[in-house]
Write a protein that binds this DNA or RNA. Structure first.
Lengths: 195, 195
DNA sequence: GATTAACACGAACGATCGTGCTAAAAAAGC
DNA sequence: GCTTTTTTAGCACGATCGTTCGTGTTAATC
């Protein structure tokens, strides 16, 4: 049985997530990762077989981590409270001191948005999934004339802008801005759509 | 007089912007850039003296380009119409077929959000500038109880989410979503802030 | 026409990139 | 305790990275 291999694989991916957070998935190099563990380059490489496999594994590992942190939100019924919980979780994830460059998935989204390959496909799957979940929560309480996908788009917008304001601009008010934006969005979702 | 040098420098930066759009500012390599022009690696390098100087110059060039495209908006008074024009301009810029990876500045924002150095400082200056301009347009018509910085944050959110939906997800409805989000934001700006 | 400055080039540097191959060490199964 | 499988290390490869240097070519100045 593969026992030892799995635990070192997890150790590798934890560190890979950290490095990818700062330097991006492409900037994540096998040599630097091996040196940080520490481990031999070839020994590490044998776990994945290719760089893009390592990139995909790192992405999935990051997605799994944030999924676990958001798990308590599943107890809440889909609706405003769950959305507030998700936003808090994402904001804490973006500001996680263990991730010196913010969310590695967000980074990869910009890095690989136009590069075909397995990494992009993994990203698409992950992002479509979270988009769908946000839309569900909006649909649970929004006015029937409102489009859940529209609201989910704006929810995503808030998290992206928070990443931008918090990490690049280092703006202290970023948290307030994001919370207020969500409250306004929740309020609007309950009203009928104008036009 | 530096005559020939300036024109080749512009040619270099045009191509650098294209490559940085797809591969990021760090993925922009001197060798690949020289091969694409075509030009010798050393001849190109002499124009900038270092890679980070090339990165900064590429960023400034991109900012100048988008500034020129947004210039007609200066004729409009600060307010909703100008905001609509800016959003249209940014969306066209993000979808520009000459930029195979979307806006290179947005890419750099995620790539360099936690890497100290001249590139990050350039980004900070550029982003603070556009943030300030958006806040001005909101302040021109918003209800006094509204915070222009809050509204500018949400305006940025829309453009970031559009980049995400259009380039990564390749979602056709992205344009509609962004326009609707802006209209909702403009409408809210005119109303007093609740509580 | 001679001098000088600006510009581009080719070659080479040490370093690091991703990726194989082979053998030693460690763990697992009996 | 031995065998078999899994995991790691060592070493080397071709390619590419940013950068430096010396040289030639072109254009402007006197």
């Amino acid at each position: 049985m593969a026992e030892k291999g799995d635990s070192t694989r997890a150790r590798i991916l934890d560190e890979a997530m950290r490095i990818a957070s700062r330097d991006g998935l492409e900037g994540l190099s096998i040599g630097a990762l091996a040196a940080a563990l520490p481990m031999s380059k070839s020994g590490l490489f044998a776990h994945f077989g290719s760089k893009s496999a390592l990139q995909v594994a790192t992405l999935e590992h990051a997605a799994q981590t944030v999924r676990e942190r958001a798990a308590p939100g599943a107890r809440l019924a889909p609706g405003p409270e769950r959305l507030r919980f998700i936003l808090r979780t994402i904001m804490a994830w973006i500001d996680d001191p263990g991730l010196p460059g913010g969310c590695p998935i967000t980074g990869a989204c910009v890095e690989f948005d136009d590069r075909e390959g397995p990494v992009r496909e993994t990203l698409l799957r992950l992002q479509r999934d979270t988009q769908r979940r946000a839309a569900e929560s909006f649909a649970a309480f929004a006015h029937p004339s409102q489009d859940p996908d529209q609201l989910a788009f704006e929810f995503r917008a808030i998290t992206l802008a928070y990443h931008h304001a918090s990490r690049l601009l280092r703006e202290e008010r970023a948290g307030d801005w994001a919370r207020r934006a969500l409250e306004a969005l929740i309020a609007r979702a309950g009203r009928p759509m104008p036009d």
